[in-house]
Amino acid sequence: MPGTVQPGPGPIRIASNPIADRRGELARAVVAIQFERWPALYARYGEAGRERCVEDVGFHLLYLAEAVATDSPALFREYAAWVKVLFAGIGIPDGELGESLEILRDVVAARVDPATAERVRACVGEALAALPGLPREVPPFVRPDAPHGRLARSYMDALLAGDRRRAAALVTEQAAAGVRVSDLYLHVFQPALREIGRLWQTRAITVAHEHFATAATQAIMGQLYPAIFAAKRRGLSMVAACISGEQHEIGIRMVADFFEMAGWDSHYLGANTPVNSIVHAVRERDARILAVSATITAHVGRVAALIAAVRAELGERPPPVLVGGYPFNLVPDLWRTVGADAFAPGAAEAVAIAERLIAPAAPDRAAGAA
């Protein structure tokens, strides 16, 4: 099964996945049928376009592979919802997406074992059934009627204009005026970055805008650290990391900062952290909690592998593992599937759940997810 851990010393390896491992071959088979069925595609895109289609279908397959491995059709349905918005932004008709998913289903189901094929049909079938009713656009995340909504809008506008100094001044002035750092994180940084992600998804901005906004926000968060680290220390340690391959690190960094504001000593390892390095950090820092983030659905199996490694390597004293990120928000029980102790939908909730997980009287470690 995907996400299992090979025993013994040496690097942790994620076990074979029958779809992900063959995605290059499968993607080319899907695209060959697409170009045969729709001859206008080649006329429109040419050979370079064919290769781009292979790349795109490869991403579809990664998401399908994880949905199948975890038996979570909702994961692929929500991925199809994201793609529908993306395609609407570049003028691809909804019907073309539906037909592409049908081809994907038939190609993959014909090339895997019967049990996997059944799950493939279930996952793609749920996406196809939902597709007509899925929205073609996502509502804005920055709203003037939300807490600090006008500030969030001004902050986002400064980032999109490439004015990091203005963005920083907006935030630091509010912090000096008494606005809590936690509120700036939750009501300014978070909605602004989500809105910038939405604008990229609809092709209103480029990926360069998104990368600049993320980098600038991380730098501005650093300017708030004197306030973040001012809380009285409680002798509690935690490790926060993104799984190997995961580049979206700002969410887990916010989680680590919320632990700091609650008096914990956080050890934030950043993006794309190898499994063995995370295990070493947990042991070295005597962590009471390990917080792990996965934003990309295709990385869920790696979270399972990490949790298994932590339990195997740390023996009788593994800390509770708290997971979060986009795929865990989509599927309520996905955290149980990967073997975590709890799931937190946001940074503030992560601290509260962690406190319950380590409480001596806690009757059930998984109760933190309630």
Rank of each mutant, 00 (worst) to 15 (best):
F76K: 05
V30C: 12
R23E: 07
R77K: 15
L86M: 13
E25G: 00
E25V: 12
R22N: 14
G58Q: 03
P93E: 13
A32N: 10
V54G: 06
F76P: 07
W82V: 06
V57I: 15
A65R: 04
P73E: 12
V85H: 02
V30I: 14
I19V: 11
G58Y: 06
G58W: 04
E47A: 13
P93A: 11
Y42W: 06
L97S: 07
E51H: 08
F76I: 08
F59G: 03
G89I: 12
H60Y: 15
V85D: 04
D71E: 15
A20P: 01
G24T: 11
R52V: 04
R44K: 10
R52T: 11
W38L: 00
Y79W: 13
L75T: 10
H60W: 03
S100Q: 11
I92A: 07
A40L: 11
Y45N: 02
S72I: 01
A43G: 12
Y45P: 01
L101W: 08
Y79H: 14
A110G: 10
H60A: 03
I90R: 11
W38I: 02
S100Y: 03
I19C: 04
F87W: 14
V54I: 15
D94F: 05
I33S: 08
L41E: 02
R23M: 12
Y45A: 04
V108Y: 05
G24Q: 09
E51Y: 05
I33L: 15
G24P: 00
G58K: 07
L41T: 00
Y63L: 12
P73K: 14
L64I: 10
P73I: 15
E47Q: 10
D94R: 15
L41N: 09
I92L: 14
V31C: 09
L26V: 02
A32R: 15
Y42E: 10
Y45V: 01
A80H: 08
A80Q: 06
D106M: 11
A110C: 04
L62G: 02
L97W: 07
L86T: 03
R50C: 00
R37K: 14
P39Y: 07
V108C: 08
Q34T: 05
I103A: 05
D106K: 10
I33A: 13
A74N: 10
Y42F: 12
L64M: 13
A109K: 09
A69D: 14
Y63W: 06
K84M: 05
D94E: 15
L86W: 12
D21V: 04
S72T: 14
R111S: 13
E96T: 11
I19H: 05
